[in-house]
Simulated scan of single mutants.
Amino acid sequence: MTTVTVWNEYRHEREDDEAREVYPDGIHETIAGFLADEGFDTRTATLDEPEHGLTESVLDDTDVLTWWGHEAHDEVEDEVVERVHERVLSGMGLLVLHSGHFSKIFKRLMGTTCDLKWRDEGEKERLWLVEPGHPIAEGVEESIEVPEAEMYGERFDVPAPDTLVFNSWFEGGEVFRSGCCYRRGAGRVFYFRPGHETYPIYHQPEIQKVLANAVSWASPVGGTVPSTGHVPEPPERD
C-alpha cells in the first residue's frame, strides 16, 4: 500500500475564521481523508510539530509527500528542506499544491524563483486537460470548473515541465500552467495549482480525483539502483 504524508502549514485554519469554516480540521485532514478513502495509507504533518513532523523515520516510511504552505515558507528549517530534497532525489514522490509554489523545497527542486502573477477576487477557474493520455488524467473530464478561485497568471517562473497535464483559464483572461510534471533524480514531482484556503476546492470530487491519480503516478517505482562513483577496473569482456 502506498504511504502518503500530507504536510500542511496549518496556520490559516487556526487564525482565520473564513478558512476555519471551510477546513475546520485543516486542509491536511481533508486531503488525508479523501486519499484514505481511495485506499492510500495516510498520515499528516504540520509546520509547528517538532521537525515540522518530517522526521527521518517519517520520511523513510513515506512514498509520496504532499505539500501545502503559504504564509510561513521562511519558517521551514533548511535542515528539513534538505532532508526532503534528498528523499525526492532518491525516489519519494512530491505533490506541491497551490501556494506551495513558493515553498523552499519547490524552489530548491526547480532552481528558479517560482514567481507568478496573482489576484484573489473569487473568480471562476477552468482547468483544461491538455494531456488526456497521462496517468494523472485517468477518469478526468476534458475540463474542470472551479467556481471560486484565487487567480494565478503567467509568467510562472519554473522550468518547462516534462509533461503539462492541465492549463487554467480565469475570468480576467489570464492563463496558467496548472498541472506540471517533473522528474528530479529518481523522484517524480507534480505541481497542482488549485487549492486556496478560503475556497472549498479540496472538497470537489474532480480535484480529489486528480490528486489521487497524482499520488499513484508519483509513487516510487522499483527497479535497479545504478552504482556511481569511481570504478577501479573496467568490466571483463568476452
Results as ranks from 00 to 15, higher is better:
14 R>G: 02
15 E>R: 06
18 E>V: 03
21 E>A: 11
21 E>G: 00
21 E>M: 03
24 P>K: 07
25 D>H: 09
25 D>A: 09
26 G>E: 07
29 E>C: 09
29 E>A: 11
31 I>L: 15
33 G>W: 13
35 L>W: 11
36 A>Q: 12
36 A>G: 10
37 D>R: 14
37 D>H: 15
37 D>F: 10
38 E>A: 11
39 G>D: 09
41 D>S: 10
42 T>N: 03
42 T>W: 09
43 R>T: 08
47 L>C: 01
48 D>H: 00
49 E>L: 09
50 P>V: 02
50 P>K: 04
51 E>V: 02
51 E>Y: 05
51 E>N: 12
52 H>F: 11
53 G>S: 02
55 T>S: 14
55 T>L: 06
56 E>P: 00
56 E>V: 07
57 S>I: 07
57 S>T: 12
59 L>K: 03
60 D>A: 15
62 T>R: 00
63 D>P: 05
63 D>S: 06
63 D>E: 09
64 V>R: 01
64 V>I: 11
64 V>K: 03
65 L>G: 02
65 L>A: 08
65 L>T: 03
65 L>Y: 10
65 L>R: 00
65 L>E: 04
66 T>E: 09
67 W>L: 04
68 W>M: 14
69 G>C: 13
70 H>W: 14
70 H>C: 10
71 E>G: 13
71 E>K: 07
74 D>L: 07
79 E>H: 09
79 E>I: 06
79 E>Q: 10
81 V>R: 07
81 V>W: 09
84 V>L: 08
86 E>A: 14
87 R>Q: 01
87 R>Y: 01
88 V>F: 10
88 V>Q: 04
88 V>E: 09
89 L>H: 07
89 L>P: 02
89 L>G: 10
90 S>P: 02
92 M>V: 00
95 L>Y: 11
95 L>F: 06
96 V>F: 13
99 S>H: 10
100 G>K: 05
100 G>L: 06
102 F>E: 15
103 S>M: 01
103 S>T: 06
104 K>Y: 07
105 I>L: 10
106 F>Y: 13
109 L>K: 00
109 L>S: 02
112 T>Y: 11
112 T>V: 12
114 C>F: 12
115 D>S: 13
115 D>I: 14
116 L>W: 14
118 W>H: 14
119 R>S: 15
119 R>H: 12
119 R>E: 15
120 D>S: 12
120 D>Q: 04
121 E>L: 07
121 E>F: 11
121 E>R: 09
121 E>M: 11
121 E>W: 13
